[in-house]
């Protein structure tokens, strides 16, 4: 079954950024320069948090605008990036109205969620989680 990461319940998010740190830690970085997930306040902590991550949409606009075919739709949903054919034009990031495509300024290429679930391991409050793509999940990005 194809899986993806989802914001299960943004109201459970305490803004600790553990998910962001976990994502960059996969590549040996402390911080979130290489992270494919972001958490920020919704304009002040009293308004709660926003979790920004690829929602693996159907017919993804980012893949449609990729001029080289480096970003392809994954079978069953979501996208896969072939780093070596990506020319770093940034069209994909522009096309994502969720802002869920981040940028690697060292490589000048997009950073996309790989749906690996590493971040979920560190979300002790269960605000995010891995879900199967056929399952209806609650609003991904509030």
């Amino acid at each position: 079954m194809v899986k993806k990461l989802a914001a299960l319940d943004v109201d459970k998010c305490i803004g600790c950024m553990e998910c962001m740190f976990a994502c960059s830690r996969r590549v040996g970085r402390g911080g979130f320069e290489k992270s494919a997930i972001r958490v920020r306040s919704a304009g002040g902590i009293e308004r709660g948090f926003v979790i920004i991550v690829c929602r693996a949409c159907e017919n993804p606009p980012c893949a449609r605008v990729c001029p080289t075919g480096a970003l392809r739709e994954r079978k069953g949903g979501g996208v896969i990036l072939a780093d070596d054919t990506c020319i770093g034009c940034g069209f994909c990031a522009q096309s994502c109205i969720l802002g869920a495509i981040f940028w690697d300024y060292e490589k000048d290429k997009p950073i996309l969620c790989k749906y690996c679930g590493e971040c979920e391991e560190y979300c002790v409050h269960n605000a995010i989680g891995i879900v199967e793509l056929t399952v209806e999940e609650p609003g991904v990005r509030k």
Partner: peptide, 8 residues
């Protein structure tokens, strides 16, 4: 309940 950065 909220937290500081990098504290769960």
């Amino acid at each position: 309940r909220v937290s500081c950065s990098h504290c769960p």
